[in-house]
């Protein structure tokens, strides 16, 4: 299991082995939505804000 630093609150965020690039994960401490930018090295960024045309 890899860990990375939350770009918002700087807590450690644990990623499971099945994590994927561009997956959205949540920081357990600040509840912020994060995007996994890369897996090797593990790099997190704040997930993009919801845009008007997002949906299903």
């Amino acid at each position: 299991m890899a860990t990375a630093t939350c770009p918002s609150c700087e807590s450690d965020v644990a990623l499971d082995a099945a994590s994927r690039q561009h997956e959205i994960v949540e920081c357990a401490d600040c509840r912020g939505e994060l995007e996994i930018l890369s897996l090797d090295p593990v790099l997190l960024a704040l997930a993009p804000e919801v845009e008007e045309d997002w949906g299903e």
């Binding site: 994927r20 561009h22 993009p48």
Partner: peptide, 9 residues
Amino acid sequence: ASRIAVEEK
């Protein structure tokens, strides 16, 4: 897909 949410995963 740009955003890998639960469904995409």
